[in-house]
Amino acid sequence: MTGIVALYIFMLAAFTGYEVIAKVPVILHTPLMSGSNFVHGIVLVGAMVALGAATSPLEKTIGFIGVLLAAGNAVGGYAVTERMLEMFKASGTRKVGGAKGSH
């Protein structure tokens, strides 16, 4: 990936992030913060690559800690976000669990 292409990605992603949540209601601030916290858990793939290429004991140790922390970010972020969002229901839909496939 050349530098300029990376910059394009960076710029477009920045606008995307802003636009995607621009109209979020206050009631979803906490779950959304938790959800975006989960999304940067993608650092896990980078940590895996870094540990996968590590050779010296120092690199391996730091890489191991990195993967451990990243896995915690991704898994923990998912667990708490899912728990919070699972509880958001409208009146009259109290019996069914997920809104999956509703539209």
């Binding site: 992030g17 995607v20 949540i21 109209k23 979020v24 209601p25 009631i27 979803l28 779950p31 959304l32 959800g35 975006s36 989960f38 999304v39 858990g41 993608i42 896990l44 793939v45 895996m48 690559v49 991704a74 998912y78 976000t81 899912e82 969002l85 699972e86 958001f88 409208a90 997920g98 809104a99 999956k100 496939g101 509703s102 539209h103």
Partner: peptide, 28 residues
């Protein structure tokens, strides 16, 4: 994230994002 910004679709939003994480981790 888009789905997570509306209460109607929020629940499915985290499932979408979760699937994304799973795909990336396995591919790596």
């Amino acid at each position: 994230l888009k789905r997570m910004s509306s209460p109607v679709t929020a629940r499915s939003g985290i499932l979408w994002a979760g699937a994304g994480m799973l795909v990336a981790t396995l591919a790596t």
